[in-house]
Design a protein around this nucleic acid. Structure first.
Lengths: 226, 226
DNA sequence: CGCCCCTTTGAAGCATATCAAACCGCGTGG
DNA sequence: CCACGCGGTTTGATATGCTTCAAAGGGGCG
């Protein structure tokens, strides 16, 4: 097992006064600056995404902590950058100040009202955000998962999307899968063979593009959860 | 050197009649279906992004060919998916039909007109697309680059963003860099040391967070170009 | 000055790439 | 109908790049 990442950086729970804790309507209408000290959490994973952040000074990292002490930093945010805009209503990654960092907070609602006034544009934005979410999930896979975790994640993804009558019909070749997962086709093949031997999946027809997942729970246990 | 990807799949240049070749205003106003055969290119890298594609049947891959025969598939698109919406006016990845695939073509302009009518929403969309572009570039890095290429790409990115008077001031630790690049901090350190020994960069002060890039061209040559 | 944390450097192990060959389903043509 | 060839897949053996484990250096701050 590869364990490549940080365990020693400690977000400080509840160390912040205003921006993280509030939930109701706030006196701020649009702009407001706030300064975080080195190492402080700007927002945590799964926190409500109430603000969008505009970096004025300093630097922040946006990242996710995975099991096994692994961490993936998806982006660094420097002065001028805007971050924290989410598709859903919670942040999918944590944001932390790398050094003392001043951000301008923008209420999300003030942006949303505009976006939703225009259905067509709202759809465009929603599409872009869907793509972004997929890309960011894939960053975790490519950055921090080993080959078995990658293949398990892939099969679960396909299982969600293209199952017809319990059988997953993969249209793409092993090479396509490999290039998607950032490994070689041999590695993909070996992982699938191992899952077959473990009884997690089976090949109902005599071709390799159709498979049945026999033990979804065990397959999920091969994947890594964020 | 790791060479992990495909060389044998061959997009067929100019094999398509209508959707790829046209440039002027077209009779299609909004919807139009088109079917691609297995292996056909739906659009190539750097082609004008005139349409957005809605998959009706089949499957497509969106990918980029890198030097050294490496390829990264950034996404598979299955029925119901929409793809091909770009921030700029060219496609940054190629799209190819994996099997016989029917897509609904939507003229990009018909969407854009709406988006730009609303400046605030246009900005939101633009922000989301900026994030998406960054994430997709990072997918290439995490999926297909070796450690030296990753570190070189990182230094070039930081050089563009935080150079003050020729000196690049990195606010983040080696561990942060490592978790961003999907390697260990030791690997980052070794790569930077090697670049130092090669005369590509130097440390003007006696701390490791400030560095000067002496030979930008050589540094770029350590990176991998898509 | 001395401690602490971060970084660098070294040595060894391991996961995955690479190289190679066998296997297999499938279409083709004899 | 079967031999043949072909592309894709599986499996095996070896190589290697990066991780892991370990320890030494070095700068900043008390």
């Amino acid at each position: 097992m590869l364990v490549r990442a940080a365990t020693d950086w400690t977000p400080r729970p509840g160390s912040l006064a205003e921006p993280r804790a509030t939930s109701g309507p706030r006196p701020i209408t649009c702009l407001n600056e706030f300064t975080y000290k080195r190492g402080e959490t700007i927002f945590g994973e799964s926190e409500p995404a109430e603000y969008v952040y505009h970096v004025k000074k300093g630097a922040a990292r946006r990242c996710k902590q995975l099991s096994g002490g692994r961490r993936q930093v998806v982006a660094f945010h420097l002065p001028g950058d805007v971050f924290g805009l989410e598709n859903g209503d919670v942040h999918r990654f944590a944001a932390e100040a790398i050094v003392e960092t001043t951000v301008q907070l923008i209420e999300r609602q003030s942006l949303e009202a505009v976006g939703e006034s225009d259905a067509a544009t709202g759809n465009l934005l929603s599409m872009a955000n869907d793509n972004l979410r997929h890309a960011e999930n894939h960053l975790l896979l490519l950055g921090r998962k080993n080959s078995m975790e990658r293949v398990a994640a892939f099969l679960l993804e396909m299982d969600e999307r293209i199952t017809a009558a319990r059988v997953v019909s993969l249209p793409m070749s092993r090479r396509d899968i490999a290039d998607y997962l950032g490994v070689t086709l041999e590695t993909v093949s070996r992982a699938i063979s191992q899952l077959h031997r473990s009884g997690v999946l089976d090949f109902p027809s005599n071709n390799q593009k159709e498979l049945v997942i026999l033990d979804r729970a065990q397959l999920a246990s091969f994947d890594l959860q964020g």
